[in-house]
Write a protein that binds this DNA or RNA. Structure first.
Lengths: 214, 214
DNA sequence: TTGCGCTCGACTGCATGCAATGTATACGTT
DNA sequence: AACGTATACATTGCATGCAGTCGAGCGCAA
């Protein structure tokens, strides 16, 4: 059985409620056909997750502005650099089964193919699956959980401006560089590759506004 | 008014419930003199925070084992490297008021003095305040929030083995190196100093067991 | 005595009802 | 006509009651 929290989270992440949307508990009760108690609980947990924000009246889907989005990407870069480094280190220690690496390559290929073919939603999904698998290889469950949260936040806030990446070839190139660094057990290079890749993605955001004052 | 979630969190972080302790909602109801509804909600949020863990029956305070503790420290190292780098970068851009830096130095001194004088609890508190201020200077609220969560987890799981640091002088030396790197606007050095400092703290843990199998 | 099954109890999850609070609107006053 | 105030409504937070579920302890049989 799926919890109300999971269902609501899925709704938000999948874009059923656009960022900035104001929601009341009552609305969700009829939408999910449950009582207010589990809805209340779910909303508060999602607030801890940074997906919704408590307003004076009700809650609203968080929309990260330019600065907050840049902050999130920098965190993601730091964490993915860590997971990539750990994954490469495990490879160096001979702790990674070969199947895990071939799977990584397959995920990268799937991400590249779908993106190139124009299926943006599937491209994002496969891209995330690729990055997520790196974190799985790192064998650090807490880092994986944190990255999942950050990814959800970013997905919600960038869905509206989801456009065809102007540089699919570059993205795949960066993925390959990361795969190679991990496969050949070079932690430092893996970390750098992951960090640079994420920061490049940030730089490619349509409305950076990475500056300061509003 | 303080929410039940905040009160319960404070109880756990302050060590009122030792790690591994089994708790039922009913117990907390009488302890906090509230109904089960807010208690339930608080427990689930704390589970998201990684402070409690849902058991088959009730919940228990999480106790990170050697591997999980090492994982947490590595995440902390990565995030603190990021915040230190950002803080140094802001200093380079002239965005840091001088008062912020003097405050940083004062916090480091307080941490050093209390630790050296043998007041372990106060030492931990001041030490955390010092590190937290670096994250504040970084001006990345999400990173600050993540670090707060990690710190709470680490505090709960290391309270039992809280012993006098065998190397107070080294700790202060590392703090000074970090302060200098930030004050003089050297992001790369600040990042390295922060990372090394945290990883050194990990290495100083009494029961590392950073290896693999149990 | 030991192993298995059953029944009782405890605990969690959800729905509903009530009280408190803040907001928006409408009315009266200046 | 504009502003201040009061009232009514919407909405949140909490307490309580009920049903379902899982575990523990006890009894019975081999």
């Amino acid at each position: 059985m799926e919890s109300t929290y999971d269902r609501l989270r899925e709704l938000i992440v999948s874009g059923a409620y656009p960022p900035g949307q104001r929601i009341t508990e009552q609305d969700l009760c009829v939408r999910l056909t449950v009582s207010r108690t589990p809805v209340r609980e779910a909303l508060h947990r999602l607030e801890s997750d940074g997906l919704v924000r408590g307003e004076r009246r009700g809650v609203s889907i968080v929309e990260l502005d330019g600065k907050a989005l840049a902050d999130a990407y920098r965190i993601r870069a730091a964490l993915e650099a860590l997971t990539a480094e750990l994954a490469a280190h495990r490879q160096l220690a001979g702790e990674l089964p070969p199947a895990a690496l071939t799977r990584l390559a397959r995920l990268a290929e799937a991400a590249d193919q779908t993106t190139t073919s124009g299926d943006l939603a599937a491209g994002v999904r496969h891209n995330r699956a690729f990055h997520r698998h790196v974190a799985v290889l790192a064998d650090n469950p807490q880092a994986l959980a944190m990255l999942d949260r950050i990814w959800d936040q970013i997905i919600v806030s960038t869905r509206a401006s989801l456009a065809a990446p102007a540089r699919p070839a570059t993205v795949d190139e960066e993925h390959q560089r990361l795969i190679t660094a991990i496969s050949e057990g070079r932690p430092a290079e893996a970390a750098t590759a992951a960090r640079d890749h994420v920061l490049a993605t940030l730089a490619a955001q349509p409305d950076p506004d990475t500056g300061g004052a509003p």
